[in-house]
Computed example of a mutant assay.
Amino acid sequence: MRLDDYDYIMVFTSHYRALYIYDRLRLKNIKTKLVTAPNKIHISCTQALKIKEEDRENIKIEIERNNIYPTAIFKIIKNGKEEDYELIE
């Protein structure tokens, strides 16, 4: 796995929420990547967070602690250089 490979992408209801939880996770040294939400899964906000499988439980705890929940979570499916998304939550 490359350093920048992520397993899931979370989308939020607002740019503020995505930025806030990104900052909280960064302070806990949990590696995430703040990205523009792909058009395929763009729901209401243009920001999303990419996360790794091994950090998922810690991220869930931090999300509950801060009471900021994602609108949806998608599994990233690699198709060569393309990405597809499968809704899981």
Rank of each mutant, 00 (worst) to 15 (best):
S44I: 09
T36I: 12
L87H: 03
T36D: 08
K33I: 05
H15V: 14
L34Y: 02
R65P: 00
Y69K: 14
E54P: 00
I43E: 13
A37D: 02
L34M: 07
K28D: 09
S44N: 12
S14C: 04
I63P: 04
I41W: 07
S14E: 08
F74V: 01
I59Q: 01
S44Q: 13
Y20R: 15
I61N: 10
Y20D: 11
K60R: 10
G80M: 12
E62D: 06
R26A: 06
T13M: 07
Y22I: 00
D7G: 02
P38F: 02
H15Y: 09
S44T: 09
K60C: 04
Q47T: 05
S14V: 03
S44C: 06
K78N: 11
E54H: 10
I77A: 04
K50L: 13
I88F: 08
K31C: 03
S14N: 12
T71I: 07
E89T: 09
I51Y: 04
R2G: 09
K33D: 13
R17L: 10
E89F: 11
A18H: 09
R17P: 01
P70S: 12
N58V: 01
D7C: 02
T32M: 04
E89Q: 14
Y6M: 05
Y16V: 12
E86D: 07
I41C: 05
T36M: 12
Y20M: 03
I63V: 10
G80W: 11
E82R: 11
Y20Q: 15
L87R: 14
Y22A: 10
R17A: 11
E64N: 12
Y8F: 15
V35L: 05
I43H: 10
D5P: 03
R26P: 01
D4M: 08
M10D: 04
